[in-house]
Amino acid sequence: MNVKMTPRINIAIDGPAGAGKSTVARLAAKALHYIYVDTGAMYRAVTLKALEAGIASDDEVDVGLLAKKLDIELLPGEDGQRVRVNGEDVTSRLRSLEINRNVSYVARSEGVRSRMAELQRLMAQDKGVVMDGRDIGTHVLPGAELKVFLTASPRERAQRRFLELDPASGISLDQLEREIEERDRLDREREIAPLVQAADAILLDSTGLSIEQVAEEIVRWAGAAASTISAEEK
């Protein structure tokens, strides 16, 4: 799967935790020769620094003030995208259970979301970006030429996250499924940029599908969107 498109477009992939957004977005970006922007990693980086600073994850004011002081960089690496905060590589520390349990609270801060959206829009201003998150198509890039809402059953999403965890964590699959369902609730009910499918987004349920199948479908839709724009410009 290797495609070059003209004109270049922006692709927004939204959906709940564990739907496979990051992996799918990374594969689609590679196939299209686009830039991949992992917005979830940015919120996880803020969460990490808040926990290290002793700031409660639900302290929206202080977490927001902290976010303004953080220089977050997303950089290509041999084994995937690297995340640096104020010059420090924190990539390997962003998938812990503690981060999983606190990131939704941090993401509810208006100050945090405002700062992250500002950075994300700058990354996408020249087009040719695949960006995944929970409010990309509705809030960050409402003008994206292709919007996809990617989901899967809570059980399947829990199984995917379960495989990422250290076996020594002691968490069960059932517990992880309950935590994912709670995170879904928090994301849907937050006042600032809640998790919701954009009216013009394509719904894609990845339950039972491979990551490669999902990425190929998105690349196909991207080609169709680019062709439509090209035809309209003639």
Rank of each mutant, 00 (worst) to 15 (best):
N102G: 06
R115I: 04
E118Q: 15
A107V: 07
Y105L: 13
L94F: 02
A107G: 14
V90C: 10
G111H: 12
V112N: 11
V112G: 13
T91P: 05
S92H: 09
E110H: 09
S104P: 03
S96V: 01
M116K: 10
L97R: 10
V106C: 09
A117E: 12
R101E: 15
L119N: 13
D89P: 00
M116L: 15
G111D: 11
V106I: 14
T91D: 10
E118C: 08
R101N: 15
V106K: 07
M116Q: 14
A117Y: 10
E118S: 14
S109I: 02
N100C: 02
V103K: 06
L97I: 07
V112A: 12
Y105K: 13
G111W: 11
R93N: 11
I99C: 09
L119W: 06
A117I: 03
R113M: 05
R93S: 14
I99L: 10
A117L: 10
S104E: 11
Y105E: 09
Y105I: 01
Y105A: 15
L119I: 05
S96I: 04
E118D: 15
N100R: 06
R101F: 05
T91E: 13
M116G: 09
Y105T: 03
R101S: 12
V112P: 11
Q120I: 03
Q120Y: 01
S114H: 15
R101Y: 05
E110K: 15
V90N: 12
S96H: 08
S96Y: 05
R113I: 03
D89L: 04
E118N: 13
S109M: 02
E118H: 09
E98Y: 00
E110P: 06
V106H: 07
G111L: 07
E98I: 01
E98Q: 12
S96R: 09
L119S: 12
S109R: 09
S104A: 15
N102I: 01
L94P: 01
L97T: 00
R115L: 06
I99T: 10
Y105R: 12
R101M: 07
N102Y: 04
M116F: 04
I99H: 11
D89R: 09
M116E: 11
A117K: 13
R95P: 00
L97D: 07
L119E: 14
I99Q: 12
E98T: 04
S92N: 14
V90H: 07
S109A: 15
S96A: 10
L97K: 03
E118G: 13
R115G: 02
